[in-house]
């Protein structure tokens, strides 16, 4: 086993767009195992935090430091976006794509993708153009594409925000399986039920800051901050 890329540590991290501090200053560490869920109202900065950790955003000040040397840190992570990004090619080719990028030979990559397309229940449409799939199918495809590289850390940005109940449960099944297999999951959601079902811990974000970090039970049954209590009551929408 290679040395792990975790923990990742944020020190006084601030992301500013224009004159506004979108998030921060944040001082956080993610290590160990499990599923951290970032919860909070729209505009709280959940997406920005995830993108910052994954290197898609830069700090205006402060630092993000992964334990491993820079170079291959980000290639041992995957990110699933809120609106699934689907390449204009077949489902199987979508799933195999990250392996091609890593230089895996075509035959091996396709064989692995065939396995995944079966696991997510899309074998019958795997050779069709992926852009005609439904929203839920596209997101399952994005999950498989994220997992095929066996990432150490998986970022999920509201992966079920636009999906119906059945599709949501399927995605949650994939997330749970990944966590059980040892993948460190860091996920944003504003769905309380989902947070309860999946979270090892909850980070409550509001106005760009983390106001509370606790186990799911503690957070939902006995929130410590006033903002979290308001949020859970439904009084805090923006």
């Amino acid at each position: 086993m290679v040395e792990t890329i975790l923990p990742v540590e944020l020190q006084n991290a601030i992301v500013r767009k224009g004159t506004k501090d979108i998030i921060g200053p944040l001082n956080l560490t993610f290590g160990g195992k499990g599923c951290s869920i970032v919860i909070g109202p729209n505009g709280a900065g959940k997406t920005t935090l995830l993108r910052l950790l994954h290197g898609l955003e830069r700090t205006t000040s402060g630092t993000v430091r992964w334990a491993a040397r820079k170079g291959d840190t980000y290639s041992r992570q995957s990110f699933v976006f809120q609106a699934p990004v689907v390449l204009r090619r077949s489902g199987i080719e979508n799933i195999a794509y990250p392996l091609y990028v890593r230089g895996v030979v075509k035959k091996a990559a396709r064989a692995e993708a065939e396995k995944w397309i079966g696991d997510i229940g899309l074998r019958d449409v795997g050779n069709n153009d992926a852009s005609v799939l439904s929203g839920g199918e596209k997101q399952k495809l994005a999950m498989a594409r994220a997992l095929i590289t066996k990432p150490e850390v998986l970022f999920l940005d509201e992966p079920t925000a636009n999906l119906d109940g059945a599709a949501t449960l399927e995605i949650e099944g994939l997330i749970r399986a990944a966590v059980e297999a040892g993948t460190r999951v860091i996920m944003a959601t504003h769905d309380f039920g989902q947070a309860r079902r999946l979270a090892t811990e909850i980070l409550f974000m509001y106005h760009g800051k983390v106001h509370e970090r606790a186990t799911a039970d503690t957070f939902f049954d006995d929130p410590q901050s006033e903002e979290a209590r308001k949020f859970l009551r439904g009084d805090l929408l923006v």
């Binding site: 994954h54 898609l56 980000y74 290639s75 995957s78 990110f79 976006f81 990004v85 390449l87 794509y97 990250p98 990028v101």
Partner: peptide
């Protein structure tokens, strides 16, 4: 975003 995330 995807292609940057995959480190292409």
């Amino acid at each position: 975003d995807l292609l940057i995330s995959i480190k292409t």
